[in-house]
């Protein structure tokens, strides 16, 4: 049996599928009897989605992209043996 403190500690590792079978079984057994931890697990899923969307949307600035394209074009030329 694990308590809520331990369940919360395992929660993100559980969502990452990084727990071994025994800790998973203990965690899921705890969830069967703990509405609060079920709620926090669901909240953790949503929190991770918010982070993934908010942090993920980054685009290379045009000026930098242009410099990189020059660099990569040289790499392409080298590959073809034309440099």
């Amino acid at each position: 049996m694990i308590d809520c403190t331990e369940a919360v500690r395992r929660m993100w590792a559980y969502l990452e599928h990084e727990l071994d079978a025994k800790p998973v079984a203990e965690f899921e057994f705890h969830l069967e009897t703990c509405q609060r931890c079920c709620g926090e697990l669901e909240f953790s899923r949503h929190l991770r989605e918010v982070v993934a969307v908010g942090e993920g949307a980054t685009q290379v600035p045009p000026e930098l992209r242009s410099r990189i394209e020059t660099l990569l074009a040289k790499a392409d030329d080298t590959n073809r043996g034309t440099a």
């Binding site: 990452e16 990084e18 993934a52 942090e55």
Partner: peptide, 9 residues
């Protein structure tokens, strides 16, 4: 892990 989807390993 969360943003780029790598496993913990």
């Amino acid at each position: 892990t969360v943003v780029h989807g790598f496993s913990c390993k």
